[in-house]
Amino acid sequence: MEVLAMKEEIREIIDYYSKQRNPQEQENIVAMLREIQEAEGCITMKVQEEAAEALGVKPSVLSCIIKRYPSLKEADYAHEMVLCTGKSCQCKNSMEILDMVRKEFGISKDGISADGSFHLTTRNCLKQCRTSPNMLLDGELYANLTKEKVISLLEKRR
């Protein structure tokens, strides 16, 4: 029953924003996406498709907006992890750390860990080359990484 009520709440949000004067304006879309995320915890692809159809835009527009706003997320995960793959970090084994994280935590193609705890992305440079390899975990920088240090940090957050 609660699942149906939640779905009804999402439909009401989409319906409300689709009837606004300018439903396709980015400001309206972002407001709608924030409300959906508040209600559901994330903005799934299915919800994005329904919302895009109601607003008269392509689903890729919503996906791009979600990627542009760090506070919006497409999947329900607890922690955001960004591993640096820049030249300095690669020279100090960042790619081995990346491979280990993918294997140890069962990271799927969409970057979500098998248990749904983590979302993994990479960035070419975190601009902290002197302390490489580096990682952002929930926005906090961790430097001089080793495989053991990364596992310890991630296990504490599970």
Rank of each mutant, 00 (worst) to 15 (best):
E2R: 05
V3S: 01
L4Q: 13
A5M: 02
E8L: 10
E8K: 12
E9P: 02
E9Q: 10
I10F: 07
R11H: 11
E12Y: 09
I14R: 04
D15E: 12
D15A: 11
Y16L: 12
Q20I: 10
Q20W: 09
Q20L: 14
R21I: 12
P23I: 06
P23W: 04
Q24A: 14
Q24L: 13
Q24Y: 07
E25T: 01
E27N: 08
N28S: 13
A31Q: 06
M32W: 00
R34N: 12
E35P: 06
Q37N: 09
Q37D: 12
Q37E: 14
E38I: 03
E40Y: 06
C42H: 05
C42W: 01
I43T: 03
I43W: 02
T44N: 09
M45F: 01
M45P: 00
E49I: 11
E49A: 14
A51P: 05
A51Q: 07
A52I: 05
A54M: 05
L55E: 10
K58A: 14
K58R: 15
P59S: 15
P59R: 13
P59M: 13
S60W: 13
V61M: 12
V61N: 15
L62T: 08
S63A: 15
S63W: 08
I65C: 08
K67H: 07
A75P: 09
A75K: 12
D76W: 07
D76V: 02
A78Y: 10
A78N: 10
H79T: 00
E80F: 10
E80A: 06
E80Y: 09
E80K: 11
E80G: 03
M81Y: 05
M81L: 15
M81Q: 04
V82S: 02
V82C: 00
L83K: 12
L83R: 03
L83M: 11
L83F: 04
C84D: 09
C84W: 01
T85R: 13
T85F: 11
C89M: 09
K92S: 08
K92D: 03
K92W: 09
S94P: 02
S94G: 02
I97Y: 01
L98N: 13
L98H: 14
D99C: 00
M100N: 05
M100T: 06
V101S: 11
V101H: 04
V101Q: 07
R102P: 06
R102K: 15
E104S: 03
F105T: 01
S108C: 01
D110L: 00
D110V: 01
G111Y: 03
I112P: 02
I112A: 01
D115I: 01
D115T: 02
S117V: 04
F118Y: 15
F118P: 07
F118V: 05
H119P: 01
T121F: 00
T121K: 10
T122D: 05
R123N: 10
R123L: 07
N124I: 06
Q128T: 08
C129A: 13
T131P: 01
N134T: 13
L137S: 05
L137V: 07
D138Y: 14
G139Y: 09
G139E: 04
G139N: 10
E140W: 00
A143V: 11
T146C: 13
K147Y: 07
K147F: 09
K149C: 11
V150T: 08
S152H: 15
L154Y: 11
E155M: 07
E155L: 01
K156T: 13
R157F: 02
